[in-house]
Write a protein that binds this DNA or RNA. Structure first.
Length: 765
DNA sequence: GAGCACTGC
């Protein structure tokens, strides 16, 4: 393709504020290297008024906006390339319009004919919703009709849907039910550079689907051909293709694939997709000047503080975005900045400090989107959440200390930890790009240019740094038995795969031959849960306490529901007391969920009592109920967002259980039965108290301690099961329930030697 | 007596 000019670059010749010239903290920064980049999907725009006249104007405005996008000048070429290639790699920089426009081009070119769909995956739920909404608006249709989206808990599509935006995890789910993705003519994997675990699994899977649909379509044209050769890892699906559903399969057309990425790291993608062609689409991003420090900073927090005031006192208006590693760091920086800002002289503009991180309650998160008052500069203290997940308007200055808190995972021990590590080059570029969304901006990297060149190019893909039990279960469910030979773009370590297979085997999900067991493994793979929780649901159905386990796995699947701000710790602990069970955290969580649901029901009933005839009054009643629940949450120091999510999950899992023909039953007050069920479910995570008072995890033999946030902290139970093993200063277990040590060999005899619970009967290594 | 980046089904 005569393609498409290179992406717009940063300025090469800017003179930096640091360059030595008269700054209060001068001499800190060297000259710019002129880089700029980064970006995310198209943002949400305001819906226009519904007045006919305004609507006409709106349509014209939309058309103008679409035509102005860099991608629209190459529509014809792009469509031809898609037609010509089975797989096409599209590199589109920020603001190119690829996410909203390319699917519309494909729609116009006839890829949705004959009831077929174009599917577009996104790593995040919000992106799927906002982009689908925008595209529907541009096409002048209602969301959910021709253009729809599908995310967990919300399917906004219909029989007439032709462009379907969805989370990557959702497409994986769909592939379980329809292994050939027979309703799709083309799949677009967007934001492929983010390399989420779902995206990476999809890569391998879709390559397989392409192969089989190719085979099916040529088989149907060249008439008879025997079942495809077996012997490769996909033989199960191939035989499925050969035996079942024959008429439909014969008609199937080949599957096209478009992989869209924001980085220039095309080589890896093209090689992986069998030498696929790549095209570049120019972006539209303002230049961002990059500054480095001349020497390494001993204390990056101090350097960040000084740089903030340097910008504040010397630079033109525009808000500042400072990247920090976590909540604690943000809170202390907030205090420091506020303290220093209070000493600013009267004739200097004010500084407004706003924190944002995922655990912050939503009302407080919203503050970053409010414009600062006249004559005030806003400084936003953010975690990685501001890197991709949300775009904050008004940012012209980015301060990047070059560090990030990332999850690490030791496959040998199964221990997870969070560690502060240097960012990758791609991440640093993504961060600096945040300064050039609306106007030219500046990015101050609190490290030397030499150090930048030594950073790794891209972040290690998620699939290489987390627990793979779920992924392996899904692959087995797809009929891929040879998981070690699966076509990963970046293969996880062998030990990591083997360990997760052992884990699945211990749970009974795999047979001695390593195949998915039926019905246990098959059922487990259907649940949108960690394998251990999926198994727990199945066991609890046999043990008569599935209602309690349903509440437990729902609560275990969300972020901590207890919200304890540092300054109100005592109050929060007191509030928690009313929910506590002496048996442990699991039953405590069940109590929280039950109280919440009861409160919500009462609030709903109270609202219903005063129900009037007008919809207005019922809306008010809803608002009242909502308010009551929210104040109940804050009075009890409970994170409302987490609990709402737990309720959603509970509802969804209940549906799955019932769909399998299993019964949800409660054991009532018989918590002994429920604790036995917890022991039977979580036997892989058991720990026993040693003579010296420490605890020993039975499966790995490592020494662990009960986390102080557990209700069993300081209670010295003899034997416990737990759900989380996290390493910080030492190894802590969290979410714990007391069990009788004799239950373990009784309920998990295949794992624990019958004579006792000193050690498991296998897996000693 | 400690501390939890961010997503997703």
């Amino acid at each position: 393709m005569p393609s498409m000019a290179p992406l717009s670059g940063g300025s090469k010749d800017g003179t930096g504020p640091g360059g030595g010239a008269g700054l209060p903290f001068g001499g800190r920064f060297g000259p710019p290297d002129g880089g700029s980049s980064g970006g995310d999907a198209a943002g949400k725009r305001k819906a226009a008024s519904a007045l006919p006249e305004a609507r006409g104007n709106k349509r014209q405005a939309i058309l103008d906006q679409r035509r102005a996008l860099p991608i629209s000048s190459v529509e014809g070429e792009l469509v031809n390339l898609v037609k010509k290639n089975d797989t096409l790699v599209v590199i589109g920089e920020t603001g190119s319009g690829k996410t909203t426009q390319l699917p519309q081009f494909l729609h116009a070119a006839g890829f949705c004919k004959g009831g077929m769909m174009v599917g577009i995956t996104q790593p995040r739920r919000v992106a799927a919703i906002t982009v689908a909404t925008r595209v529907a608006e541009e096409m002048g249709v209602e969301v959910g009709k021709e253009v729809g989206y599908s995310i967990r808990f919300e399917d906004c599509t219909s029989a007439s849907t032709q462009l379907k935006y969805m989370t990557d995890g959702m497409l994986l789910r769909e592939a379980l039910l329809d292994p050939l993705l027979s309703r799709y003519s083309l799949i677009v994997i967007d934001e492929a550079h983010e390399r989420t675990i779902h995206t990476d699994v999809l890569f391998g899977l879709l390559k397989g689907v392409q192969k089989r649909r190719q085979a099916a379509s040529t088989a149907s044209t060249s008439s008879k051909q025997k079942a495809p050769k077996t012997g490769d890892s996909l033989k199960d699906l191939q035989s499925l293709l050969a035996t079942s559903n024959t008429p439909a399969v014969k008609k199937i057309s080949p599957l096209k694939l478009v992989v869209m990425s924001a980085t220039l790291d095309t080589k890896g993608f093209c090689e992986y997709f069998n030498g696929a062609e790549a095209v570049y689409v120019q972006g539209r991003q303002f230049p961002v000047e990059i500054f480095y420090t001349f020497t390494p900073e001993a204390d990056y927090l101090d350097a960040a503080l000084l740089t903030t005031f340097q910008i504040h006192l010397e630079e033109t208006p525009g808000d500042i975005l400072l990247f920090l590693t976590g909540q604690e760091e943000i809170e202390s920086m907030e205090r420091l900045l506020k303290e220093r800002a209070s000493h600013l002289s009267q004739n200097v503009q004010k500084l407004l400090v706003v924190p944002i991180y995922a655990a912050l309650p939503s009302e407080q998160q919203m503050r970053v989107f409010q414009a600062a008052p006249e004559g005030t500069r806003k400084v936003i203290l953010a975690t990685n959440i501001a890197e991709t997940s949300l775009t904050i308007p008004g940012i012209r200055y980015v301060i990047d200390p070059g560090l990030v808190k990332a999850r690490a995972f030791n496959p040998r021990t199964g221990v997870e930890s969070l560690e502060v590590v240097p960012v990758s080059k791609a991440q640093a570029q993504q961060r600096s790009g945040r300064a050039g969304r609306e106007k030219p901006g500046k990015c101050f990297r609190l490290y030397t240019e030499d150090l930048f060149t030594k950073l790794v190019a891209t972040t290690v893909p998620e699939i290489q740094r987390c627990n793979l039990a779920n992924v392996m279960l899904q692959l087995k469910a797809f009929g891929i038995d040879d998981v070690l030979g699966f076509d990963f773009m970046d293969k996880p370590s062998r030990i990591s795969i083997v360990k997760s297979l052992e884990h699945l085997y211990s749970l009974g999900a795999l047979t001695d031959e390593g195949k998915l067991s039926d019905p246990i493994g098959v059922r487990m793979s259907r649940f949108p849960l960690e394998p251990m929780y999926a198994k727990a649901m199945l066991i609890s159905c046999d043990m008569g306490c599935s209602e309690e386990m349903l509440a437990t796995v729902s609560m275990m699947s969300v972020d901590s529901v207890f919200y304890a701000p540092r300054d109100k710790l005592q109050e929060a602990n007191n509030a928690r007391k009313r929910f506590i069970s002496v048996d442990g955290d699991h039953i405590t969580f069940i109590n929280v969920l039950r109280h919440y649901i009861q409160e919500a029901e009462e609030a709903g009933a109270e609202a219903g009592e005063g129900e009037g005839t007008s919809s207005n009054s019922s809306a008010n009643e809803n608002k009242k109920a909502f308010k009551r629940i929210r104040s109940w949450c804050s009075a009890n120091f409970i994170n409302a967002r987490s609990l709402r999510r737990a309720v959603d999950i509970q509802k969804q899992i209940r549906g799955y259980v019932e769909g399998m023909g299993l019964k949800i039953t409660s054991c009532g007050e018989d918590m002994l039965s429920f604790r036995r069920c917890l022991a039977a479910s979580f036997f892989l995570n058991a720990a026993r108290r040693q003579l010296d008072g420490t605890y020993r995890a039975l499966s790995s033999g490592q020494s662990v301690a009960i986390h102080p946030s557990s209700v069993l902290f300081g209670k010295k139970p003899d034997c416990v099961v737990f759900n989380e093993l996290v390493r910080t200063n030492r190894s802590y277990i969290r979410n714990i329930t007391q069990v009788d040590s004799l239950w373990l060999p009784e309920l998990a005899p295949h794992y624990y030697a019958a004579q006792g619970v000193g050690t498991p009967s296998q897996q000693q290594s």
